[in-house]
Structures are given as C-alpha cells and as structure tokens.
C-alpha cells in the first residue's frame, strides 16, 4: 500500500528481531558488490580510510540501521549528521558518544560499552593503541557481536598510523584511493554525485578487491 506504516507492522518487527539474532547485518546491494558479500558479518572490525571514508562508512552501515540496528558514533564530533542521513542512516537509531582520543584506555572502555548494546559502532581511532588494550577490546567487541568501523581523525589520508597494517585482527580494510565528482564545473554547477574508488582487503583472503561505489 506504499504507506509508511507498512514498514513496521508487527511482522516486520519480527523480521527485524530475527535479523538481530542472526549472524549478519544487512547492507545495500551496492555496498555488497563492493565488499564481495551481501551482508556484514557480526563481530567484525572494519577500517575505512582515505578521502571519502566518512561517507563510505555511513553507506556501509545505513541498511543495518534501517533494519533496526542502533549505531553509536564514538569520538567523531565532526561527522555530518545530514550527510549520513542522506546516505540512508536512520537518525532515529543514532547516538553520539564523546571520548578522549588522547587516552586510548578511556576510548577502548567506551568502545566496549557501546558494543554492549549497539549493533554498530563508528569511531575515530586514536593514533596509537597499545597492543594489550587493542587485544582485550577487540575480543570483547567480538563477543558482543558488534560491527565496529574505525576511521582516522580527519577523513583524509593516513600518514604513519597503525591502521594501515599494525593492528592484527582487522577483518576488512577499506581504503578510498580516489574519487570522481560529478556536477561541479569552473564557476558553475554544484556537487551532485561522486564515484569512490575503493580497495578492500579482507583478513583471510589474499589480494585486494578493487571496486567503486557511487554516492549521490
């Protein structure tokens, strides 16, 4: 009937509940194409870097929020609310939490606290995370079945951060290697859409998957 209520009739709620207990969270077909499977496994650590990584991360998580999963945005005060809403994130299930990135200990505690109740956590990563803290934190978020997406602080290229290779146990590393904008000219037009070129490396698979994601 095309009316909003049909989205959340009790049947639909049941579906959502069942999804939550299942092992995977929904992604849009475009993101599925990019990461090579049509769902996000629970208990995953994902990192996104490069220019456009904020948008990429939001696009990856949007379908799950629409299916009833809650998203905690940790230590990322600059994330544009309107942009993530345009990318499909359901703002009714978004909560922002502060954390001090200078204190990896405090940050890690809050990541764990978020993971114990939210299906999705999007966080800026401290530039250095001691190995011991990293190990115990990632173990606990995995036990909670949460998908954690880590960003670097500015959304631009990482220089010398441990995100690139040091952190053992990151399941999916996404790197935006280029983006092409449509719509903007020399003194005319406006940003209309962009195509992100993304490289995705999965932990247990050899090689790097190259793909693109059109955001508009």
């Amino acid at each position: 009937m095309g009316s909003p209520i049909s989205l959340l009739t009790p049947d639909r709620l049941l579906t959502a509940d069942r999804l939550l207990t299942a092992d995977a969270l929904a992604v849009t077909p475009e993101v599925g194409e990019l990461i090579g499977r049509q769902a996000l496994d629970r208990s995953q650590w994902i990192t996104c870097q490069g220019q456009g990584s904020f948008s990429l991360a939001a696009a990856m998580l949007s379908a799950a929020t629409q299916q009833g999963s809650w998203l905690a945005i940790l230590a990322t005060p600059t994330l544009g609310v309107e942009a993530i809403s345009e990318l499909g994130v359901d703002l009714g299930r978004v909560v922002a939490v502060d954390a001090d990135l200078e204190s990896p200990m405090q940050w890690a505690e809050r990541v764990v606290a978020c993971s114990d109740g939210f299906d999705l956590v999007l966080t800026t990563m401290p530039t250095h995370i001691p190995d011991r803290i990293w190990r115990s934190m990632s173990q606990r978020t995995r036990r909670n079945g949460t998908v954690v997406v880590g960003l670097n602080s500015t959304g631009s290229n990482l220089t010398g951060s441990n995100l690139t290779g040091d952190l053992r146990g990151v399941d999916l590393r996404c790197r935006v290697v280029g983006s092409v904008w449509e719509g903007l000219g020399r003194g005319s037009g406006r940003f209309v859409a962009r195509r992100l070129q993304v490289e995705v490396a999965a932990r247990r698979l050899p090689g790097v998957r190259k793909g693109q994601l059109v955001l508009r």
């Binding site: 959340l8 009790p10 905690a72 299930r93 909560v95 809050r110 606290a113 109740g117 939210f118």
Partner: peptide, 19 residues
C-alpha cells in the same frame, strides 16, 4: 512509526544509560 519497541531498542537504551 509503529509504537512497538524491538529488543535492539531496549539494548540500546540500556547501553545509553550505562554510557
């Protein structure tokens, strides 16, 4: 929205309270 709350909503509220 439908007035109901899912388990995810309850979990999130609990986590919010703790945070």
């Amino acid at each position: 929205f439908w007035g109901g709350r899912s388990r995810a909503d309850d979990d999130a509220l609990r986590a919010i309270t703790r945070l």
